[in-house]
Simulated assay, not measured.
Amino acid sequence: MGMVRFATIGTSKICERFLDALAGEPRAALVGCYSRSGQKAREFADAHGAGLAFDSLEELAGCPEVDAVYVASPNALHVRQAKALVAAGKHVLVEKSLGSNEREAAELFRAADETGVVAMEAMRNLHTPGFAAIEREVAALGQVRLAQMSFSKVTSRIARLRAGERLNIFDPRMAAGALCDMGVYTVAPAVALFGRPERVAACGVTTRVPGTADDDPFNTIDLAGSISLGYPEIAVSLTYGKLSDDHLPCQVQGEEATLVWDHVEAPENLRVHVHEDKGMVFRQEAGEGRAVEVAACPENDMACELADFVAAVLGERGAAQMVARFRQVTLDTAHVMDEARRQLGVTFPADLA
């Protein structure tokens, strides 16, 4: 296979952004688009130069002209759709969060193994040159003791939620909420750097889903929160939300130096501050620190995850090990989020299956 022929599921802005990245990938091309509405599928396909339009998942799965599918439907549909595709021999790149919970994610990976195809989560910040640089620098900080990562921004849809509108992004039945939409950007790099934690402690801001009854098991959704991850010798603090704007940098503090960077969702501007023993001080003066050289990142950083996925589909050297490593990150991330949601009282239908 010299060219990976893609179809897409979804017509949202994130799918538009993926197609922008796909247009710049020389080893892949768009051939088809799926939507539950045949008319919408045709319009989306025409708008992006795809010859095929599908309103049947079975037809898409069975189409011999499609090698791989980018799945950007609501979270609750990801694994069901992806499993149907991998059973038919299609590779799948699944938008974050890959599944409703760890069990679902593991089921998809097992199904992919059975048919010998690639299944990968589109966790874009982990595939950027910035995150690769973070991994290299963390190894030189000495024993890591503390880390903080955060990602919060106000969403305009909060006003609609407060007005009583039921929205997919704030609906447990869609496996959504602030943690799965925003918090995942902090959990994934934390577990990529430090592994699955021994302890998870969460607190957060939750609200009643409009129109739900007191006895509805899916009547609570999270809007913001914080998660503490406990390791034998490291403590990690994560914050996320859709109610307020976060302007703090991220950092990993080692005994010999501290690494600081901006934008957990799109890492850049890395700086290392080497520890200096100045005796008793009453105010820490960090100074400018050493700037870390980072390879150039495409303006649309979804190109990075796409390039890694295509490399795996084409069987390029080292790609299988990369996919296996990020598969474990996906599972560990889901494990953390499952426990955090349990503590917050946010339940998805897949949790009761």
Rank of each mutant, 00 (worst) to 15 (best):
M3P: 05
I14V: 15
I14G: 11
C15L: 06
D20M: 05
L30D: 04
S37F: 02
E43G: 10
A47Q: 15
L57E: 11
D67P: 05
D67H: 13
A72H: 01
A76Q: 02
Q81I: 12
K90E: 12
V92R: 09
V92M: 15
V94I: 10
K96P: 12
S97Y: 15
N101P: 03
A106D: 06
E107R: 02
F109T: 10
G116T: 09
A122W: 08
L126W: 05
L126S: 11
H127W: 13
F131R: 05
Q143F: 07
Q148V: 04
A159V: 06
A163I: 05
A176F: 01
A192P: 00
R199Y: 07
A201Y: 12
R208W: 10
V209H: 03
I221E: 01
S228M: 15
G230Q: 03
G230R: 07
E233K: 11
V236A: 10
V236P: 11
S237D: 13
T239H: 12
L243P: 03
C250L: 11
Q251L: 15
E256G: 14
L259H: 08
V264C: 14
E265K: 14
D277T: 06
G279N: 11
G279E: 10
M280T: 08
G289N: 07
E293R: 15
A295H: 03
A296V: 08
N300R: 03
N300H: 04
E305C: 10
E305R: 05
D308V: 12
L314P: 01
E316Q: 00
R317F: 08
A320P: 01
V336M: 01
V336T: 02
D338E: 08
R341M: 01
R342K: 09
T347C: 04
F348N: 04
P349R: 07
D351I: 00
